[in-house]
Structure formats: structure tokens, C-alpha cells
Simulated scan of single mutants.
Amino acid sequence: MTSRSRLVLMFVPVVVTVVLAAVVGALVVVQDQRQGQQVAAADRAAEDFVSDVGTFRGDVARELGKVEATDPATLRAALTGAVAEPPRLAGAPDLGVEQSEKYARARETERTFLEPYERLSRELRRAEVALTFVEAARDALRLRATDYVGFGPLGDSAAVRSRLVPAFVQARDSFSAVRVPKGQTALAGTVRAALQHVIDEATTLAASIDANRSFSFSYAEEFSAALVAVDDYATTVQGDVTEAVNALS
């Protein structure tokens, strides 16, 4: 083998090594570029989603602002329409999804951003039932015995038996037919007891008149206590709705 041949053989491995290193380096650069592109794509998807969520929140707030906040049924209908098409986080390349911190935060936002609206919807459903109950209780407690028998002594029991007692029985039964909100069985019992008190006392009054005995009764204390309890409950319900609405801010 000549000296020239030996020299060529010595340099061939070096050249091959250099070429391989260059190829590997180029592949690493390409891989880094692809990785960067995929992360950038995931970042853009995350940024677009976060922007859409901000717009969505503003739109919902404006829609709810058009509705009377004390009317839970109307408010819930407006809420249902406003959140019907929430923004969605767009897909992104797998590597970008895996490595993008922005995309990870956007995923967490997607998981939680509807929760305040869901909570408000639940509160409004409860408020609808509660305020129907409250109005029924208030209607029943607005009854006055004097509207049926007038003021002063009664000469006979006819008005008591034919007007007063039936009116309060009907009020009691109508109220009893209304759905009782969860946890308010005792309050419902207080209202019914106040109405039943009038029925019982009026029945005794009618019998006393027929027997020519003196008898009178009062129901102001029972009605007043029941009405205070109903009003307190209504205040609590409205406060819960207000708190849920404010949580959207």
C-alpha cells in the first residue's frame, strides 16, 4: 500500500464522522424548529381561547344586566341563552400541548370558567321554588277575618261558618299545595299553624254564638311571627342570588 493510500484511509473515518455530526446537528436543528413551532401553535390556541373567554364573560354580563335581578325565572332564562355557546379550546399539536405552559393554563380555565354560571343557575332554580313558596305564604297571611265577618259583635254564626272558616280553609289548602323548598318544612308548618289557628278559633266562635256564649280571639301574634319568618327567608334567598350574580364579576 502506498503512502498516499494510507493517508486516504486515515482521513476517511474523519470525514465520515464530520459528515455524520453535521447530519445529526441538522436533524437536531430541524427537531428544535418543529418543537418550537408546535409549542407556538399551542400558545396561540391558548391565547385565542383566553381572549374568547374574556369576550364571553363580558357578553354574559351585558345580557344579564338587561334583566330584572329580582326575577329569578327571567334571569335564569337569560342566563341559559347567554351561556348556550361557550368558547372551546382549540386543539394543538401533541408536543405543543405537552410543553406549552399557556395551553396548560388554558385547559384549567376551560375546566372551570363555566362554574360560576352553573352555580348561579342552581341558585336561580332554588330561588324560583323559594319565591313561589314565599308569595303563596304572604298571600295566605294577608287574609283578615274582618274581611268576612266585619267588625263588632256577631248576632249569629252564619257569616263565620259560611264565609270566614271556608276562606281560611281554602287559604290553608292552597298554601299546602305549593312545593316546599328544601329545608323549609318548619317554616311551612309555621304558616299552616297560623292559618289553622284562625280556623280552630273561628269554629269555636261559631259554636259559642250558637250557644249564646261570649267568645273572642286574636291571631295577630301568630300571623306576625309567621310573616317575619317568611320575610327573613325571602331575604336569605335574595341574598344568595345576589352573591351568585356578583361572583360572575
Rank of each mutant, 00 (worst) to 15 (best):
G65I: 08
T109S: 08
R138P: 00
L79Q: 09
V245W: 04
A82R: 10
A90M: 14
V149W: 04
Y148L: 08
V29E: 03
T236I: 10
A220V: 11
S218Y: 04
L131R: 08
S176V: 03
A42R: 05
P87V: 11
D200G: 00
Y148K: 06
T204P: 01
T236L: 14
R62M: 11
R44I: 13
D48Q: 15
S51F: 01
V228S: 09
V16L: 11
I199V: 13
V191W: 01
V8G: 01
G54F: 00
Q37D: 15
Q184N: 12
R144T: 10
R34W: 10
V67T: 15
E47P: 00
V191C: 05
A92Q: 15
D231P: 00
V12W: 03
R172T: 00
Q99H: 14
D32R: 13
V230W: 02
L20D: 02
A244T: 06
L227T: 14
V180H: 00
A226Q: 09
V24R: 01
T204A: 11
A73C: 05
E222R: 13
G81C: 07
V178N: 07
L195I: 06
A188K: 04
A46M: 13
V241S: 05
P72I: 11
E201R: 12
V165P: 01
R76F: 04
R76N: 15
G150M: 11
R144S: 09
E222D: 08
G155M: 12
R76E: 10
F133P: 05
T109A: 11
P181Y: 08
A69H: 14
M10T: 15
